[in-house]
Amino acid sequence: MSVNVQYFARYRETLGLDGEQVEGNFPNIDALRLHLLAREGVWEVLGEQSLMCARNQELCQLAEPLQAGDEVAFFPTVTGG
């Protein structure tokens, strides 16, 4: 399966990447996160406790199931307002 992954704010800057297509077998968002975390180095930022995520532009938990073609986003705690 392929998913469209987006990174925002401090994560986008740390990774030097705003988004990518990722191939693999990911039953849920946490499986995808662990796959990315295994790249090591700057990717360790995805191990932060305060990480937030969204699936198809809706906030969700890491246990959220994934389907091929989904848009997943990882970002630090939001700070608007």
Binding site: F8, S50, A73, F75, P76, T77, V78, T79, G80
Partner: peptide, 26 residues
């Protein structure tokens, strides 16, 4: 609305401070 906006809407502030650019932490 303000409480939910501050914790659920995807905005991020990056300040230009006297010590350089800095992302605001939640």
């Amino acid at each position: 609305v303000m409480d939910y906006l501050k914790t659920r809407a995807p905005f991020w502030k990056k300040e230009n401070t006297s010590a350089g650019p800095k992302w605001v932490e939640g």
